[in-house]
Design a protein around this nucleic acid. Structure first.
Lengths: 191, 191
DNA sequence: ATAAAAAGAATGAACGTTCATTCTATTGAT
DNA sequence: ATCAATAGAATGAACGTTCATTCTTTTTAT
């Protein structure tokens, strides 16, 4: 809190505007306005809009990780761990709809494409948790013998769709519905 | 073929540019260029860019529908029909990556949001085929007793993710992999 | 008094759209 | 059959707007 007081306001404003209106519905001037800051001030903290967008993405990713691992226990069964992660992920998205919407905007954009390509060539870093779980499950023959990419699609595809539908108001998820959705995903994965 | 020769070129150019670069990577001038047409000419066929985008979307939807229903038989089991539709959908996306990418761009944009809202309040029209199948399956207790929205997420989420991964080159789908993916989706849906 | 920080007006590039003009094909007159 | 007249399709330069970024001025802190 000591140093970047304005920086925080800028990031908060950018998150809100971009999550709600997309990158093109969030001009720098509007972000500055919402942050209560001059337009030029943003450029003292971020080299340009792209950098702001990417740094914001990284911040959200970092905020999410520790939430997911709370209570995650490598000693649990594959199924137990999957249910844990899926449930935690859905609950996080429900609790932080702005984060979810921002992540979606990011992934469905040139930024997301570039980002994905990097991930393929580099290490796994964040997807780690999920991907290594799926991989372990496949090795132990608990999970279907399919390429990791497809397993990930079976696991995340429904979760992300359901989160979006909830946030857009097409459905209202309660704890029970979340649990049943995650369980259904598992049914798709398991042998 | 008699009349709209240029119109076709414009639509083709727009599809290609938007599918590959998104709406903001496809300025009207560039579309005109690629279509071999003057910039102003586009406006003889489409009132403005939004109309072009929406009409193109409708054309793609109309092209897709008949492909899906070929061989679709209401007498088959719920499972058989689901496998049929899922497989046909995946094959269509693989055969027409530009169509897939355009549909994705459309859905992940303000156009898509507006479109979705209309669908909720109006009738079901296109999703019909899939949604009524899911609904029928739920009634017959063959499919899990979950809200339609969630069932749709379980069915489409993985399929669309897998199609995207294939088109972006993260994986290469053959007929067998398609079949196993669709089967896995069914596992997620069935009781 | 000095320098760092902040502000917001100014700038220029990019875009969708318009419109005066040109081109092309059809019609009508001879 | 020929050619002038006309209609409407096509063109692309020009316009107005929007936006990211830069520049100059003002404020704040030391």
């Amino acid at each position: 809190m000591a140093k970047p007081d304005k920086r925080d306001e800028i990031v908060r404003a950018a998150l809100e505007l971009i999550a709600e209106n997309g990158f093109h519905g969030a001009p720098m001037a509007m972000i500055a306005d919402k942050a209560g800051v001059g337009a030029g001030t943003i450029y003292r903290y971020f080299e340009n809009k792209d950098v702001l967008i990417e740094e914001l993405y990284r911040e959200l990713e970092e905020k999410m990780y520790p939430v997911l691992v709370v209570g995650y226990d490598v000693e649990h069964t594959i199924r137990g761990r999957f249910i844990h992660l899926g449930t935690a992920l859905l609950h996080y998205f429900i609790a932080c709809p702005l984060h979810f919407r921002y992540l979606e905007q990011f992934h469905n954009s040139p930024y997301g494409a570039a980002f994905r390509r990097e991930k393929l060539l580099g290490k796994l870093e964040k997807g780690d948790l999920f991907c290594s779980l799926l991989q372990e499950g496949a090795e132990q023959q608990v999970i279907k013998d399919l390429p990791l990419t497809i397993l990930a699609a079976l696991a995340f595809g429904p979760l992300i769709n359901v989160a979006r539908d909830h946030i857009l108001g097409f459905i209202t998820l309660d704890d029970e519905l979340v649990a049943r959705t995650v369980a259904a995903c598992w049914d798709g994965l398991k042998r």
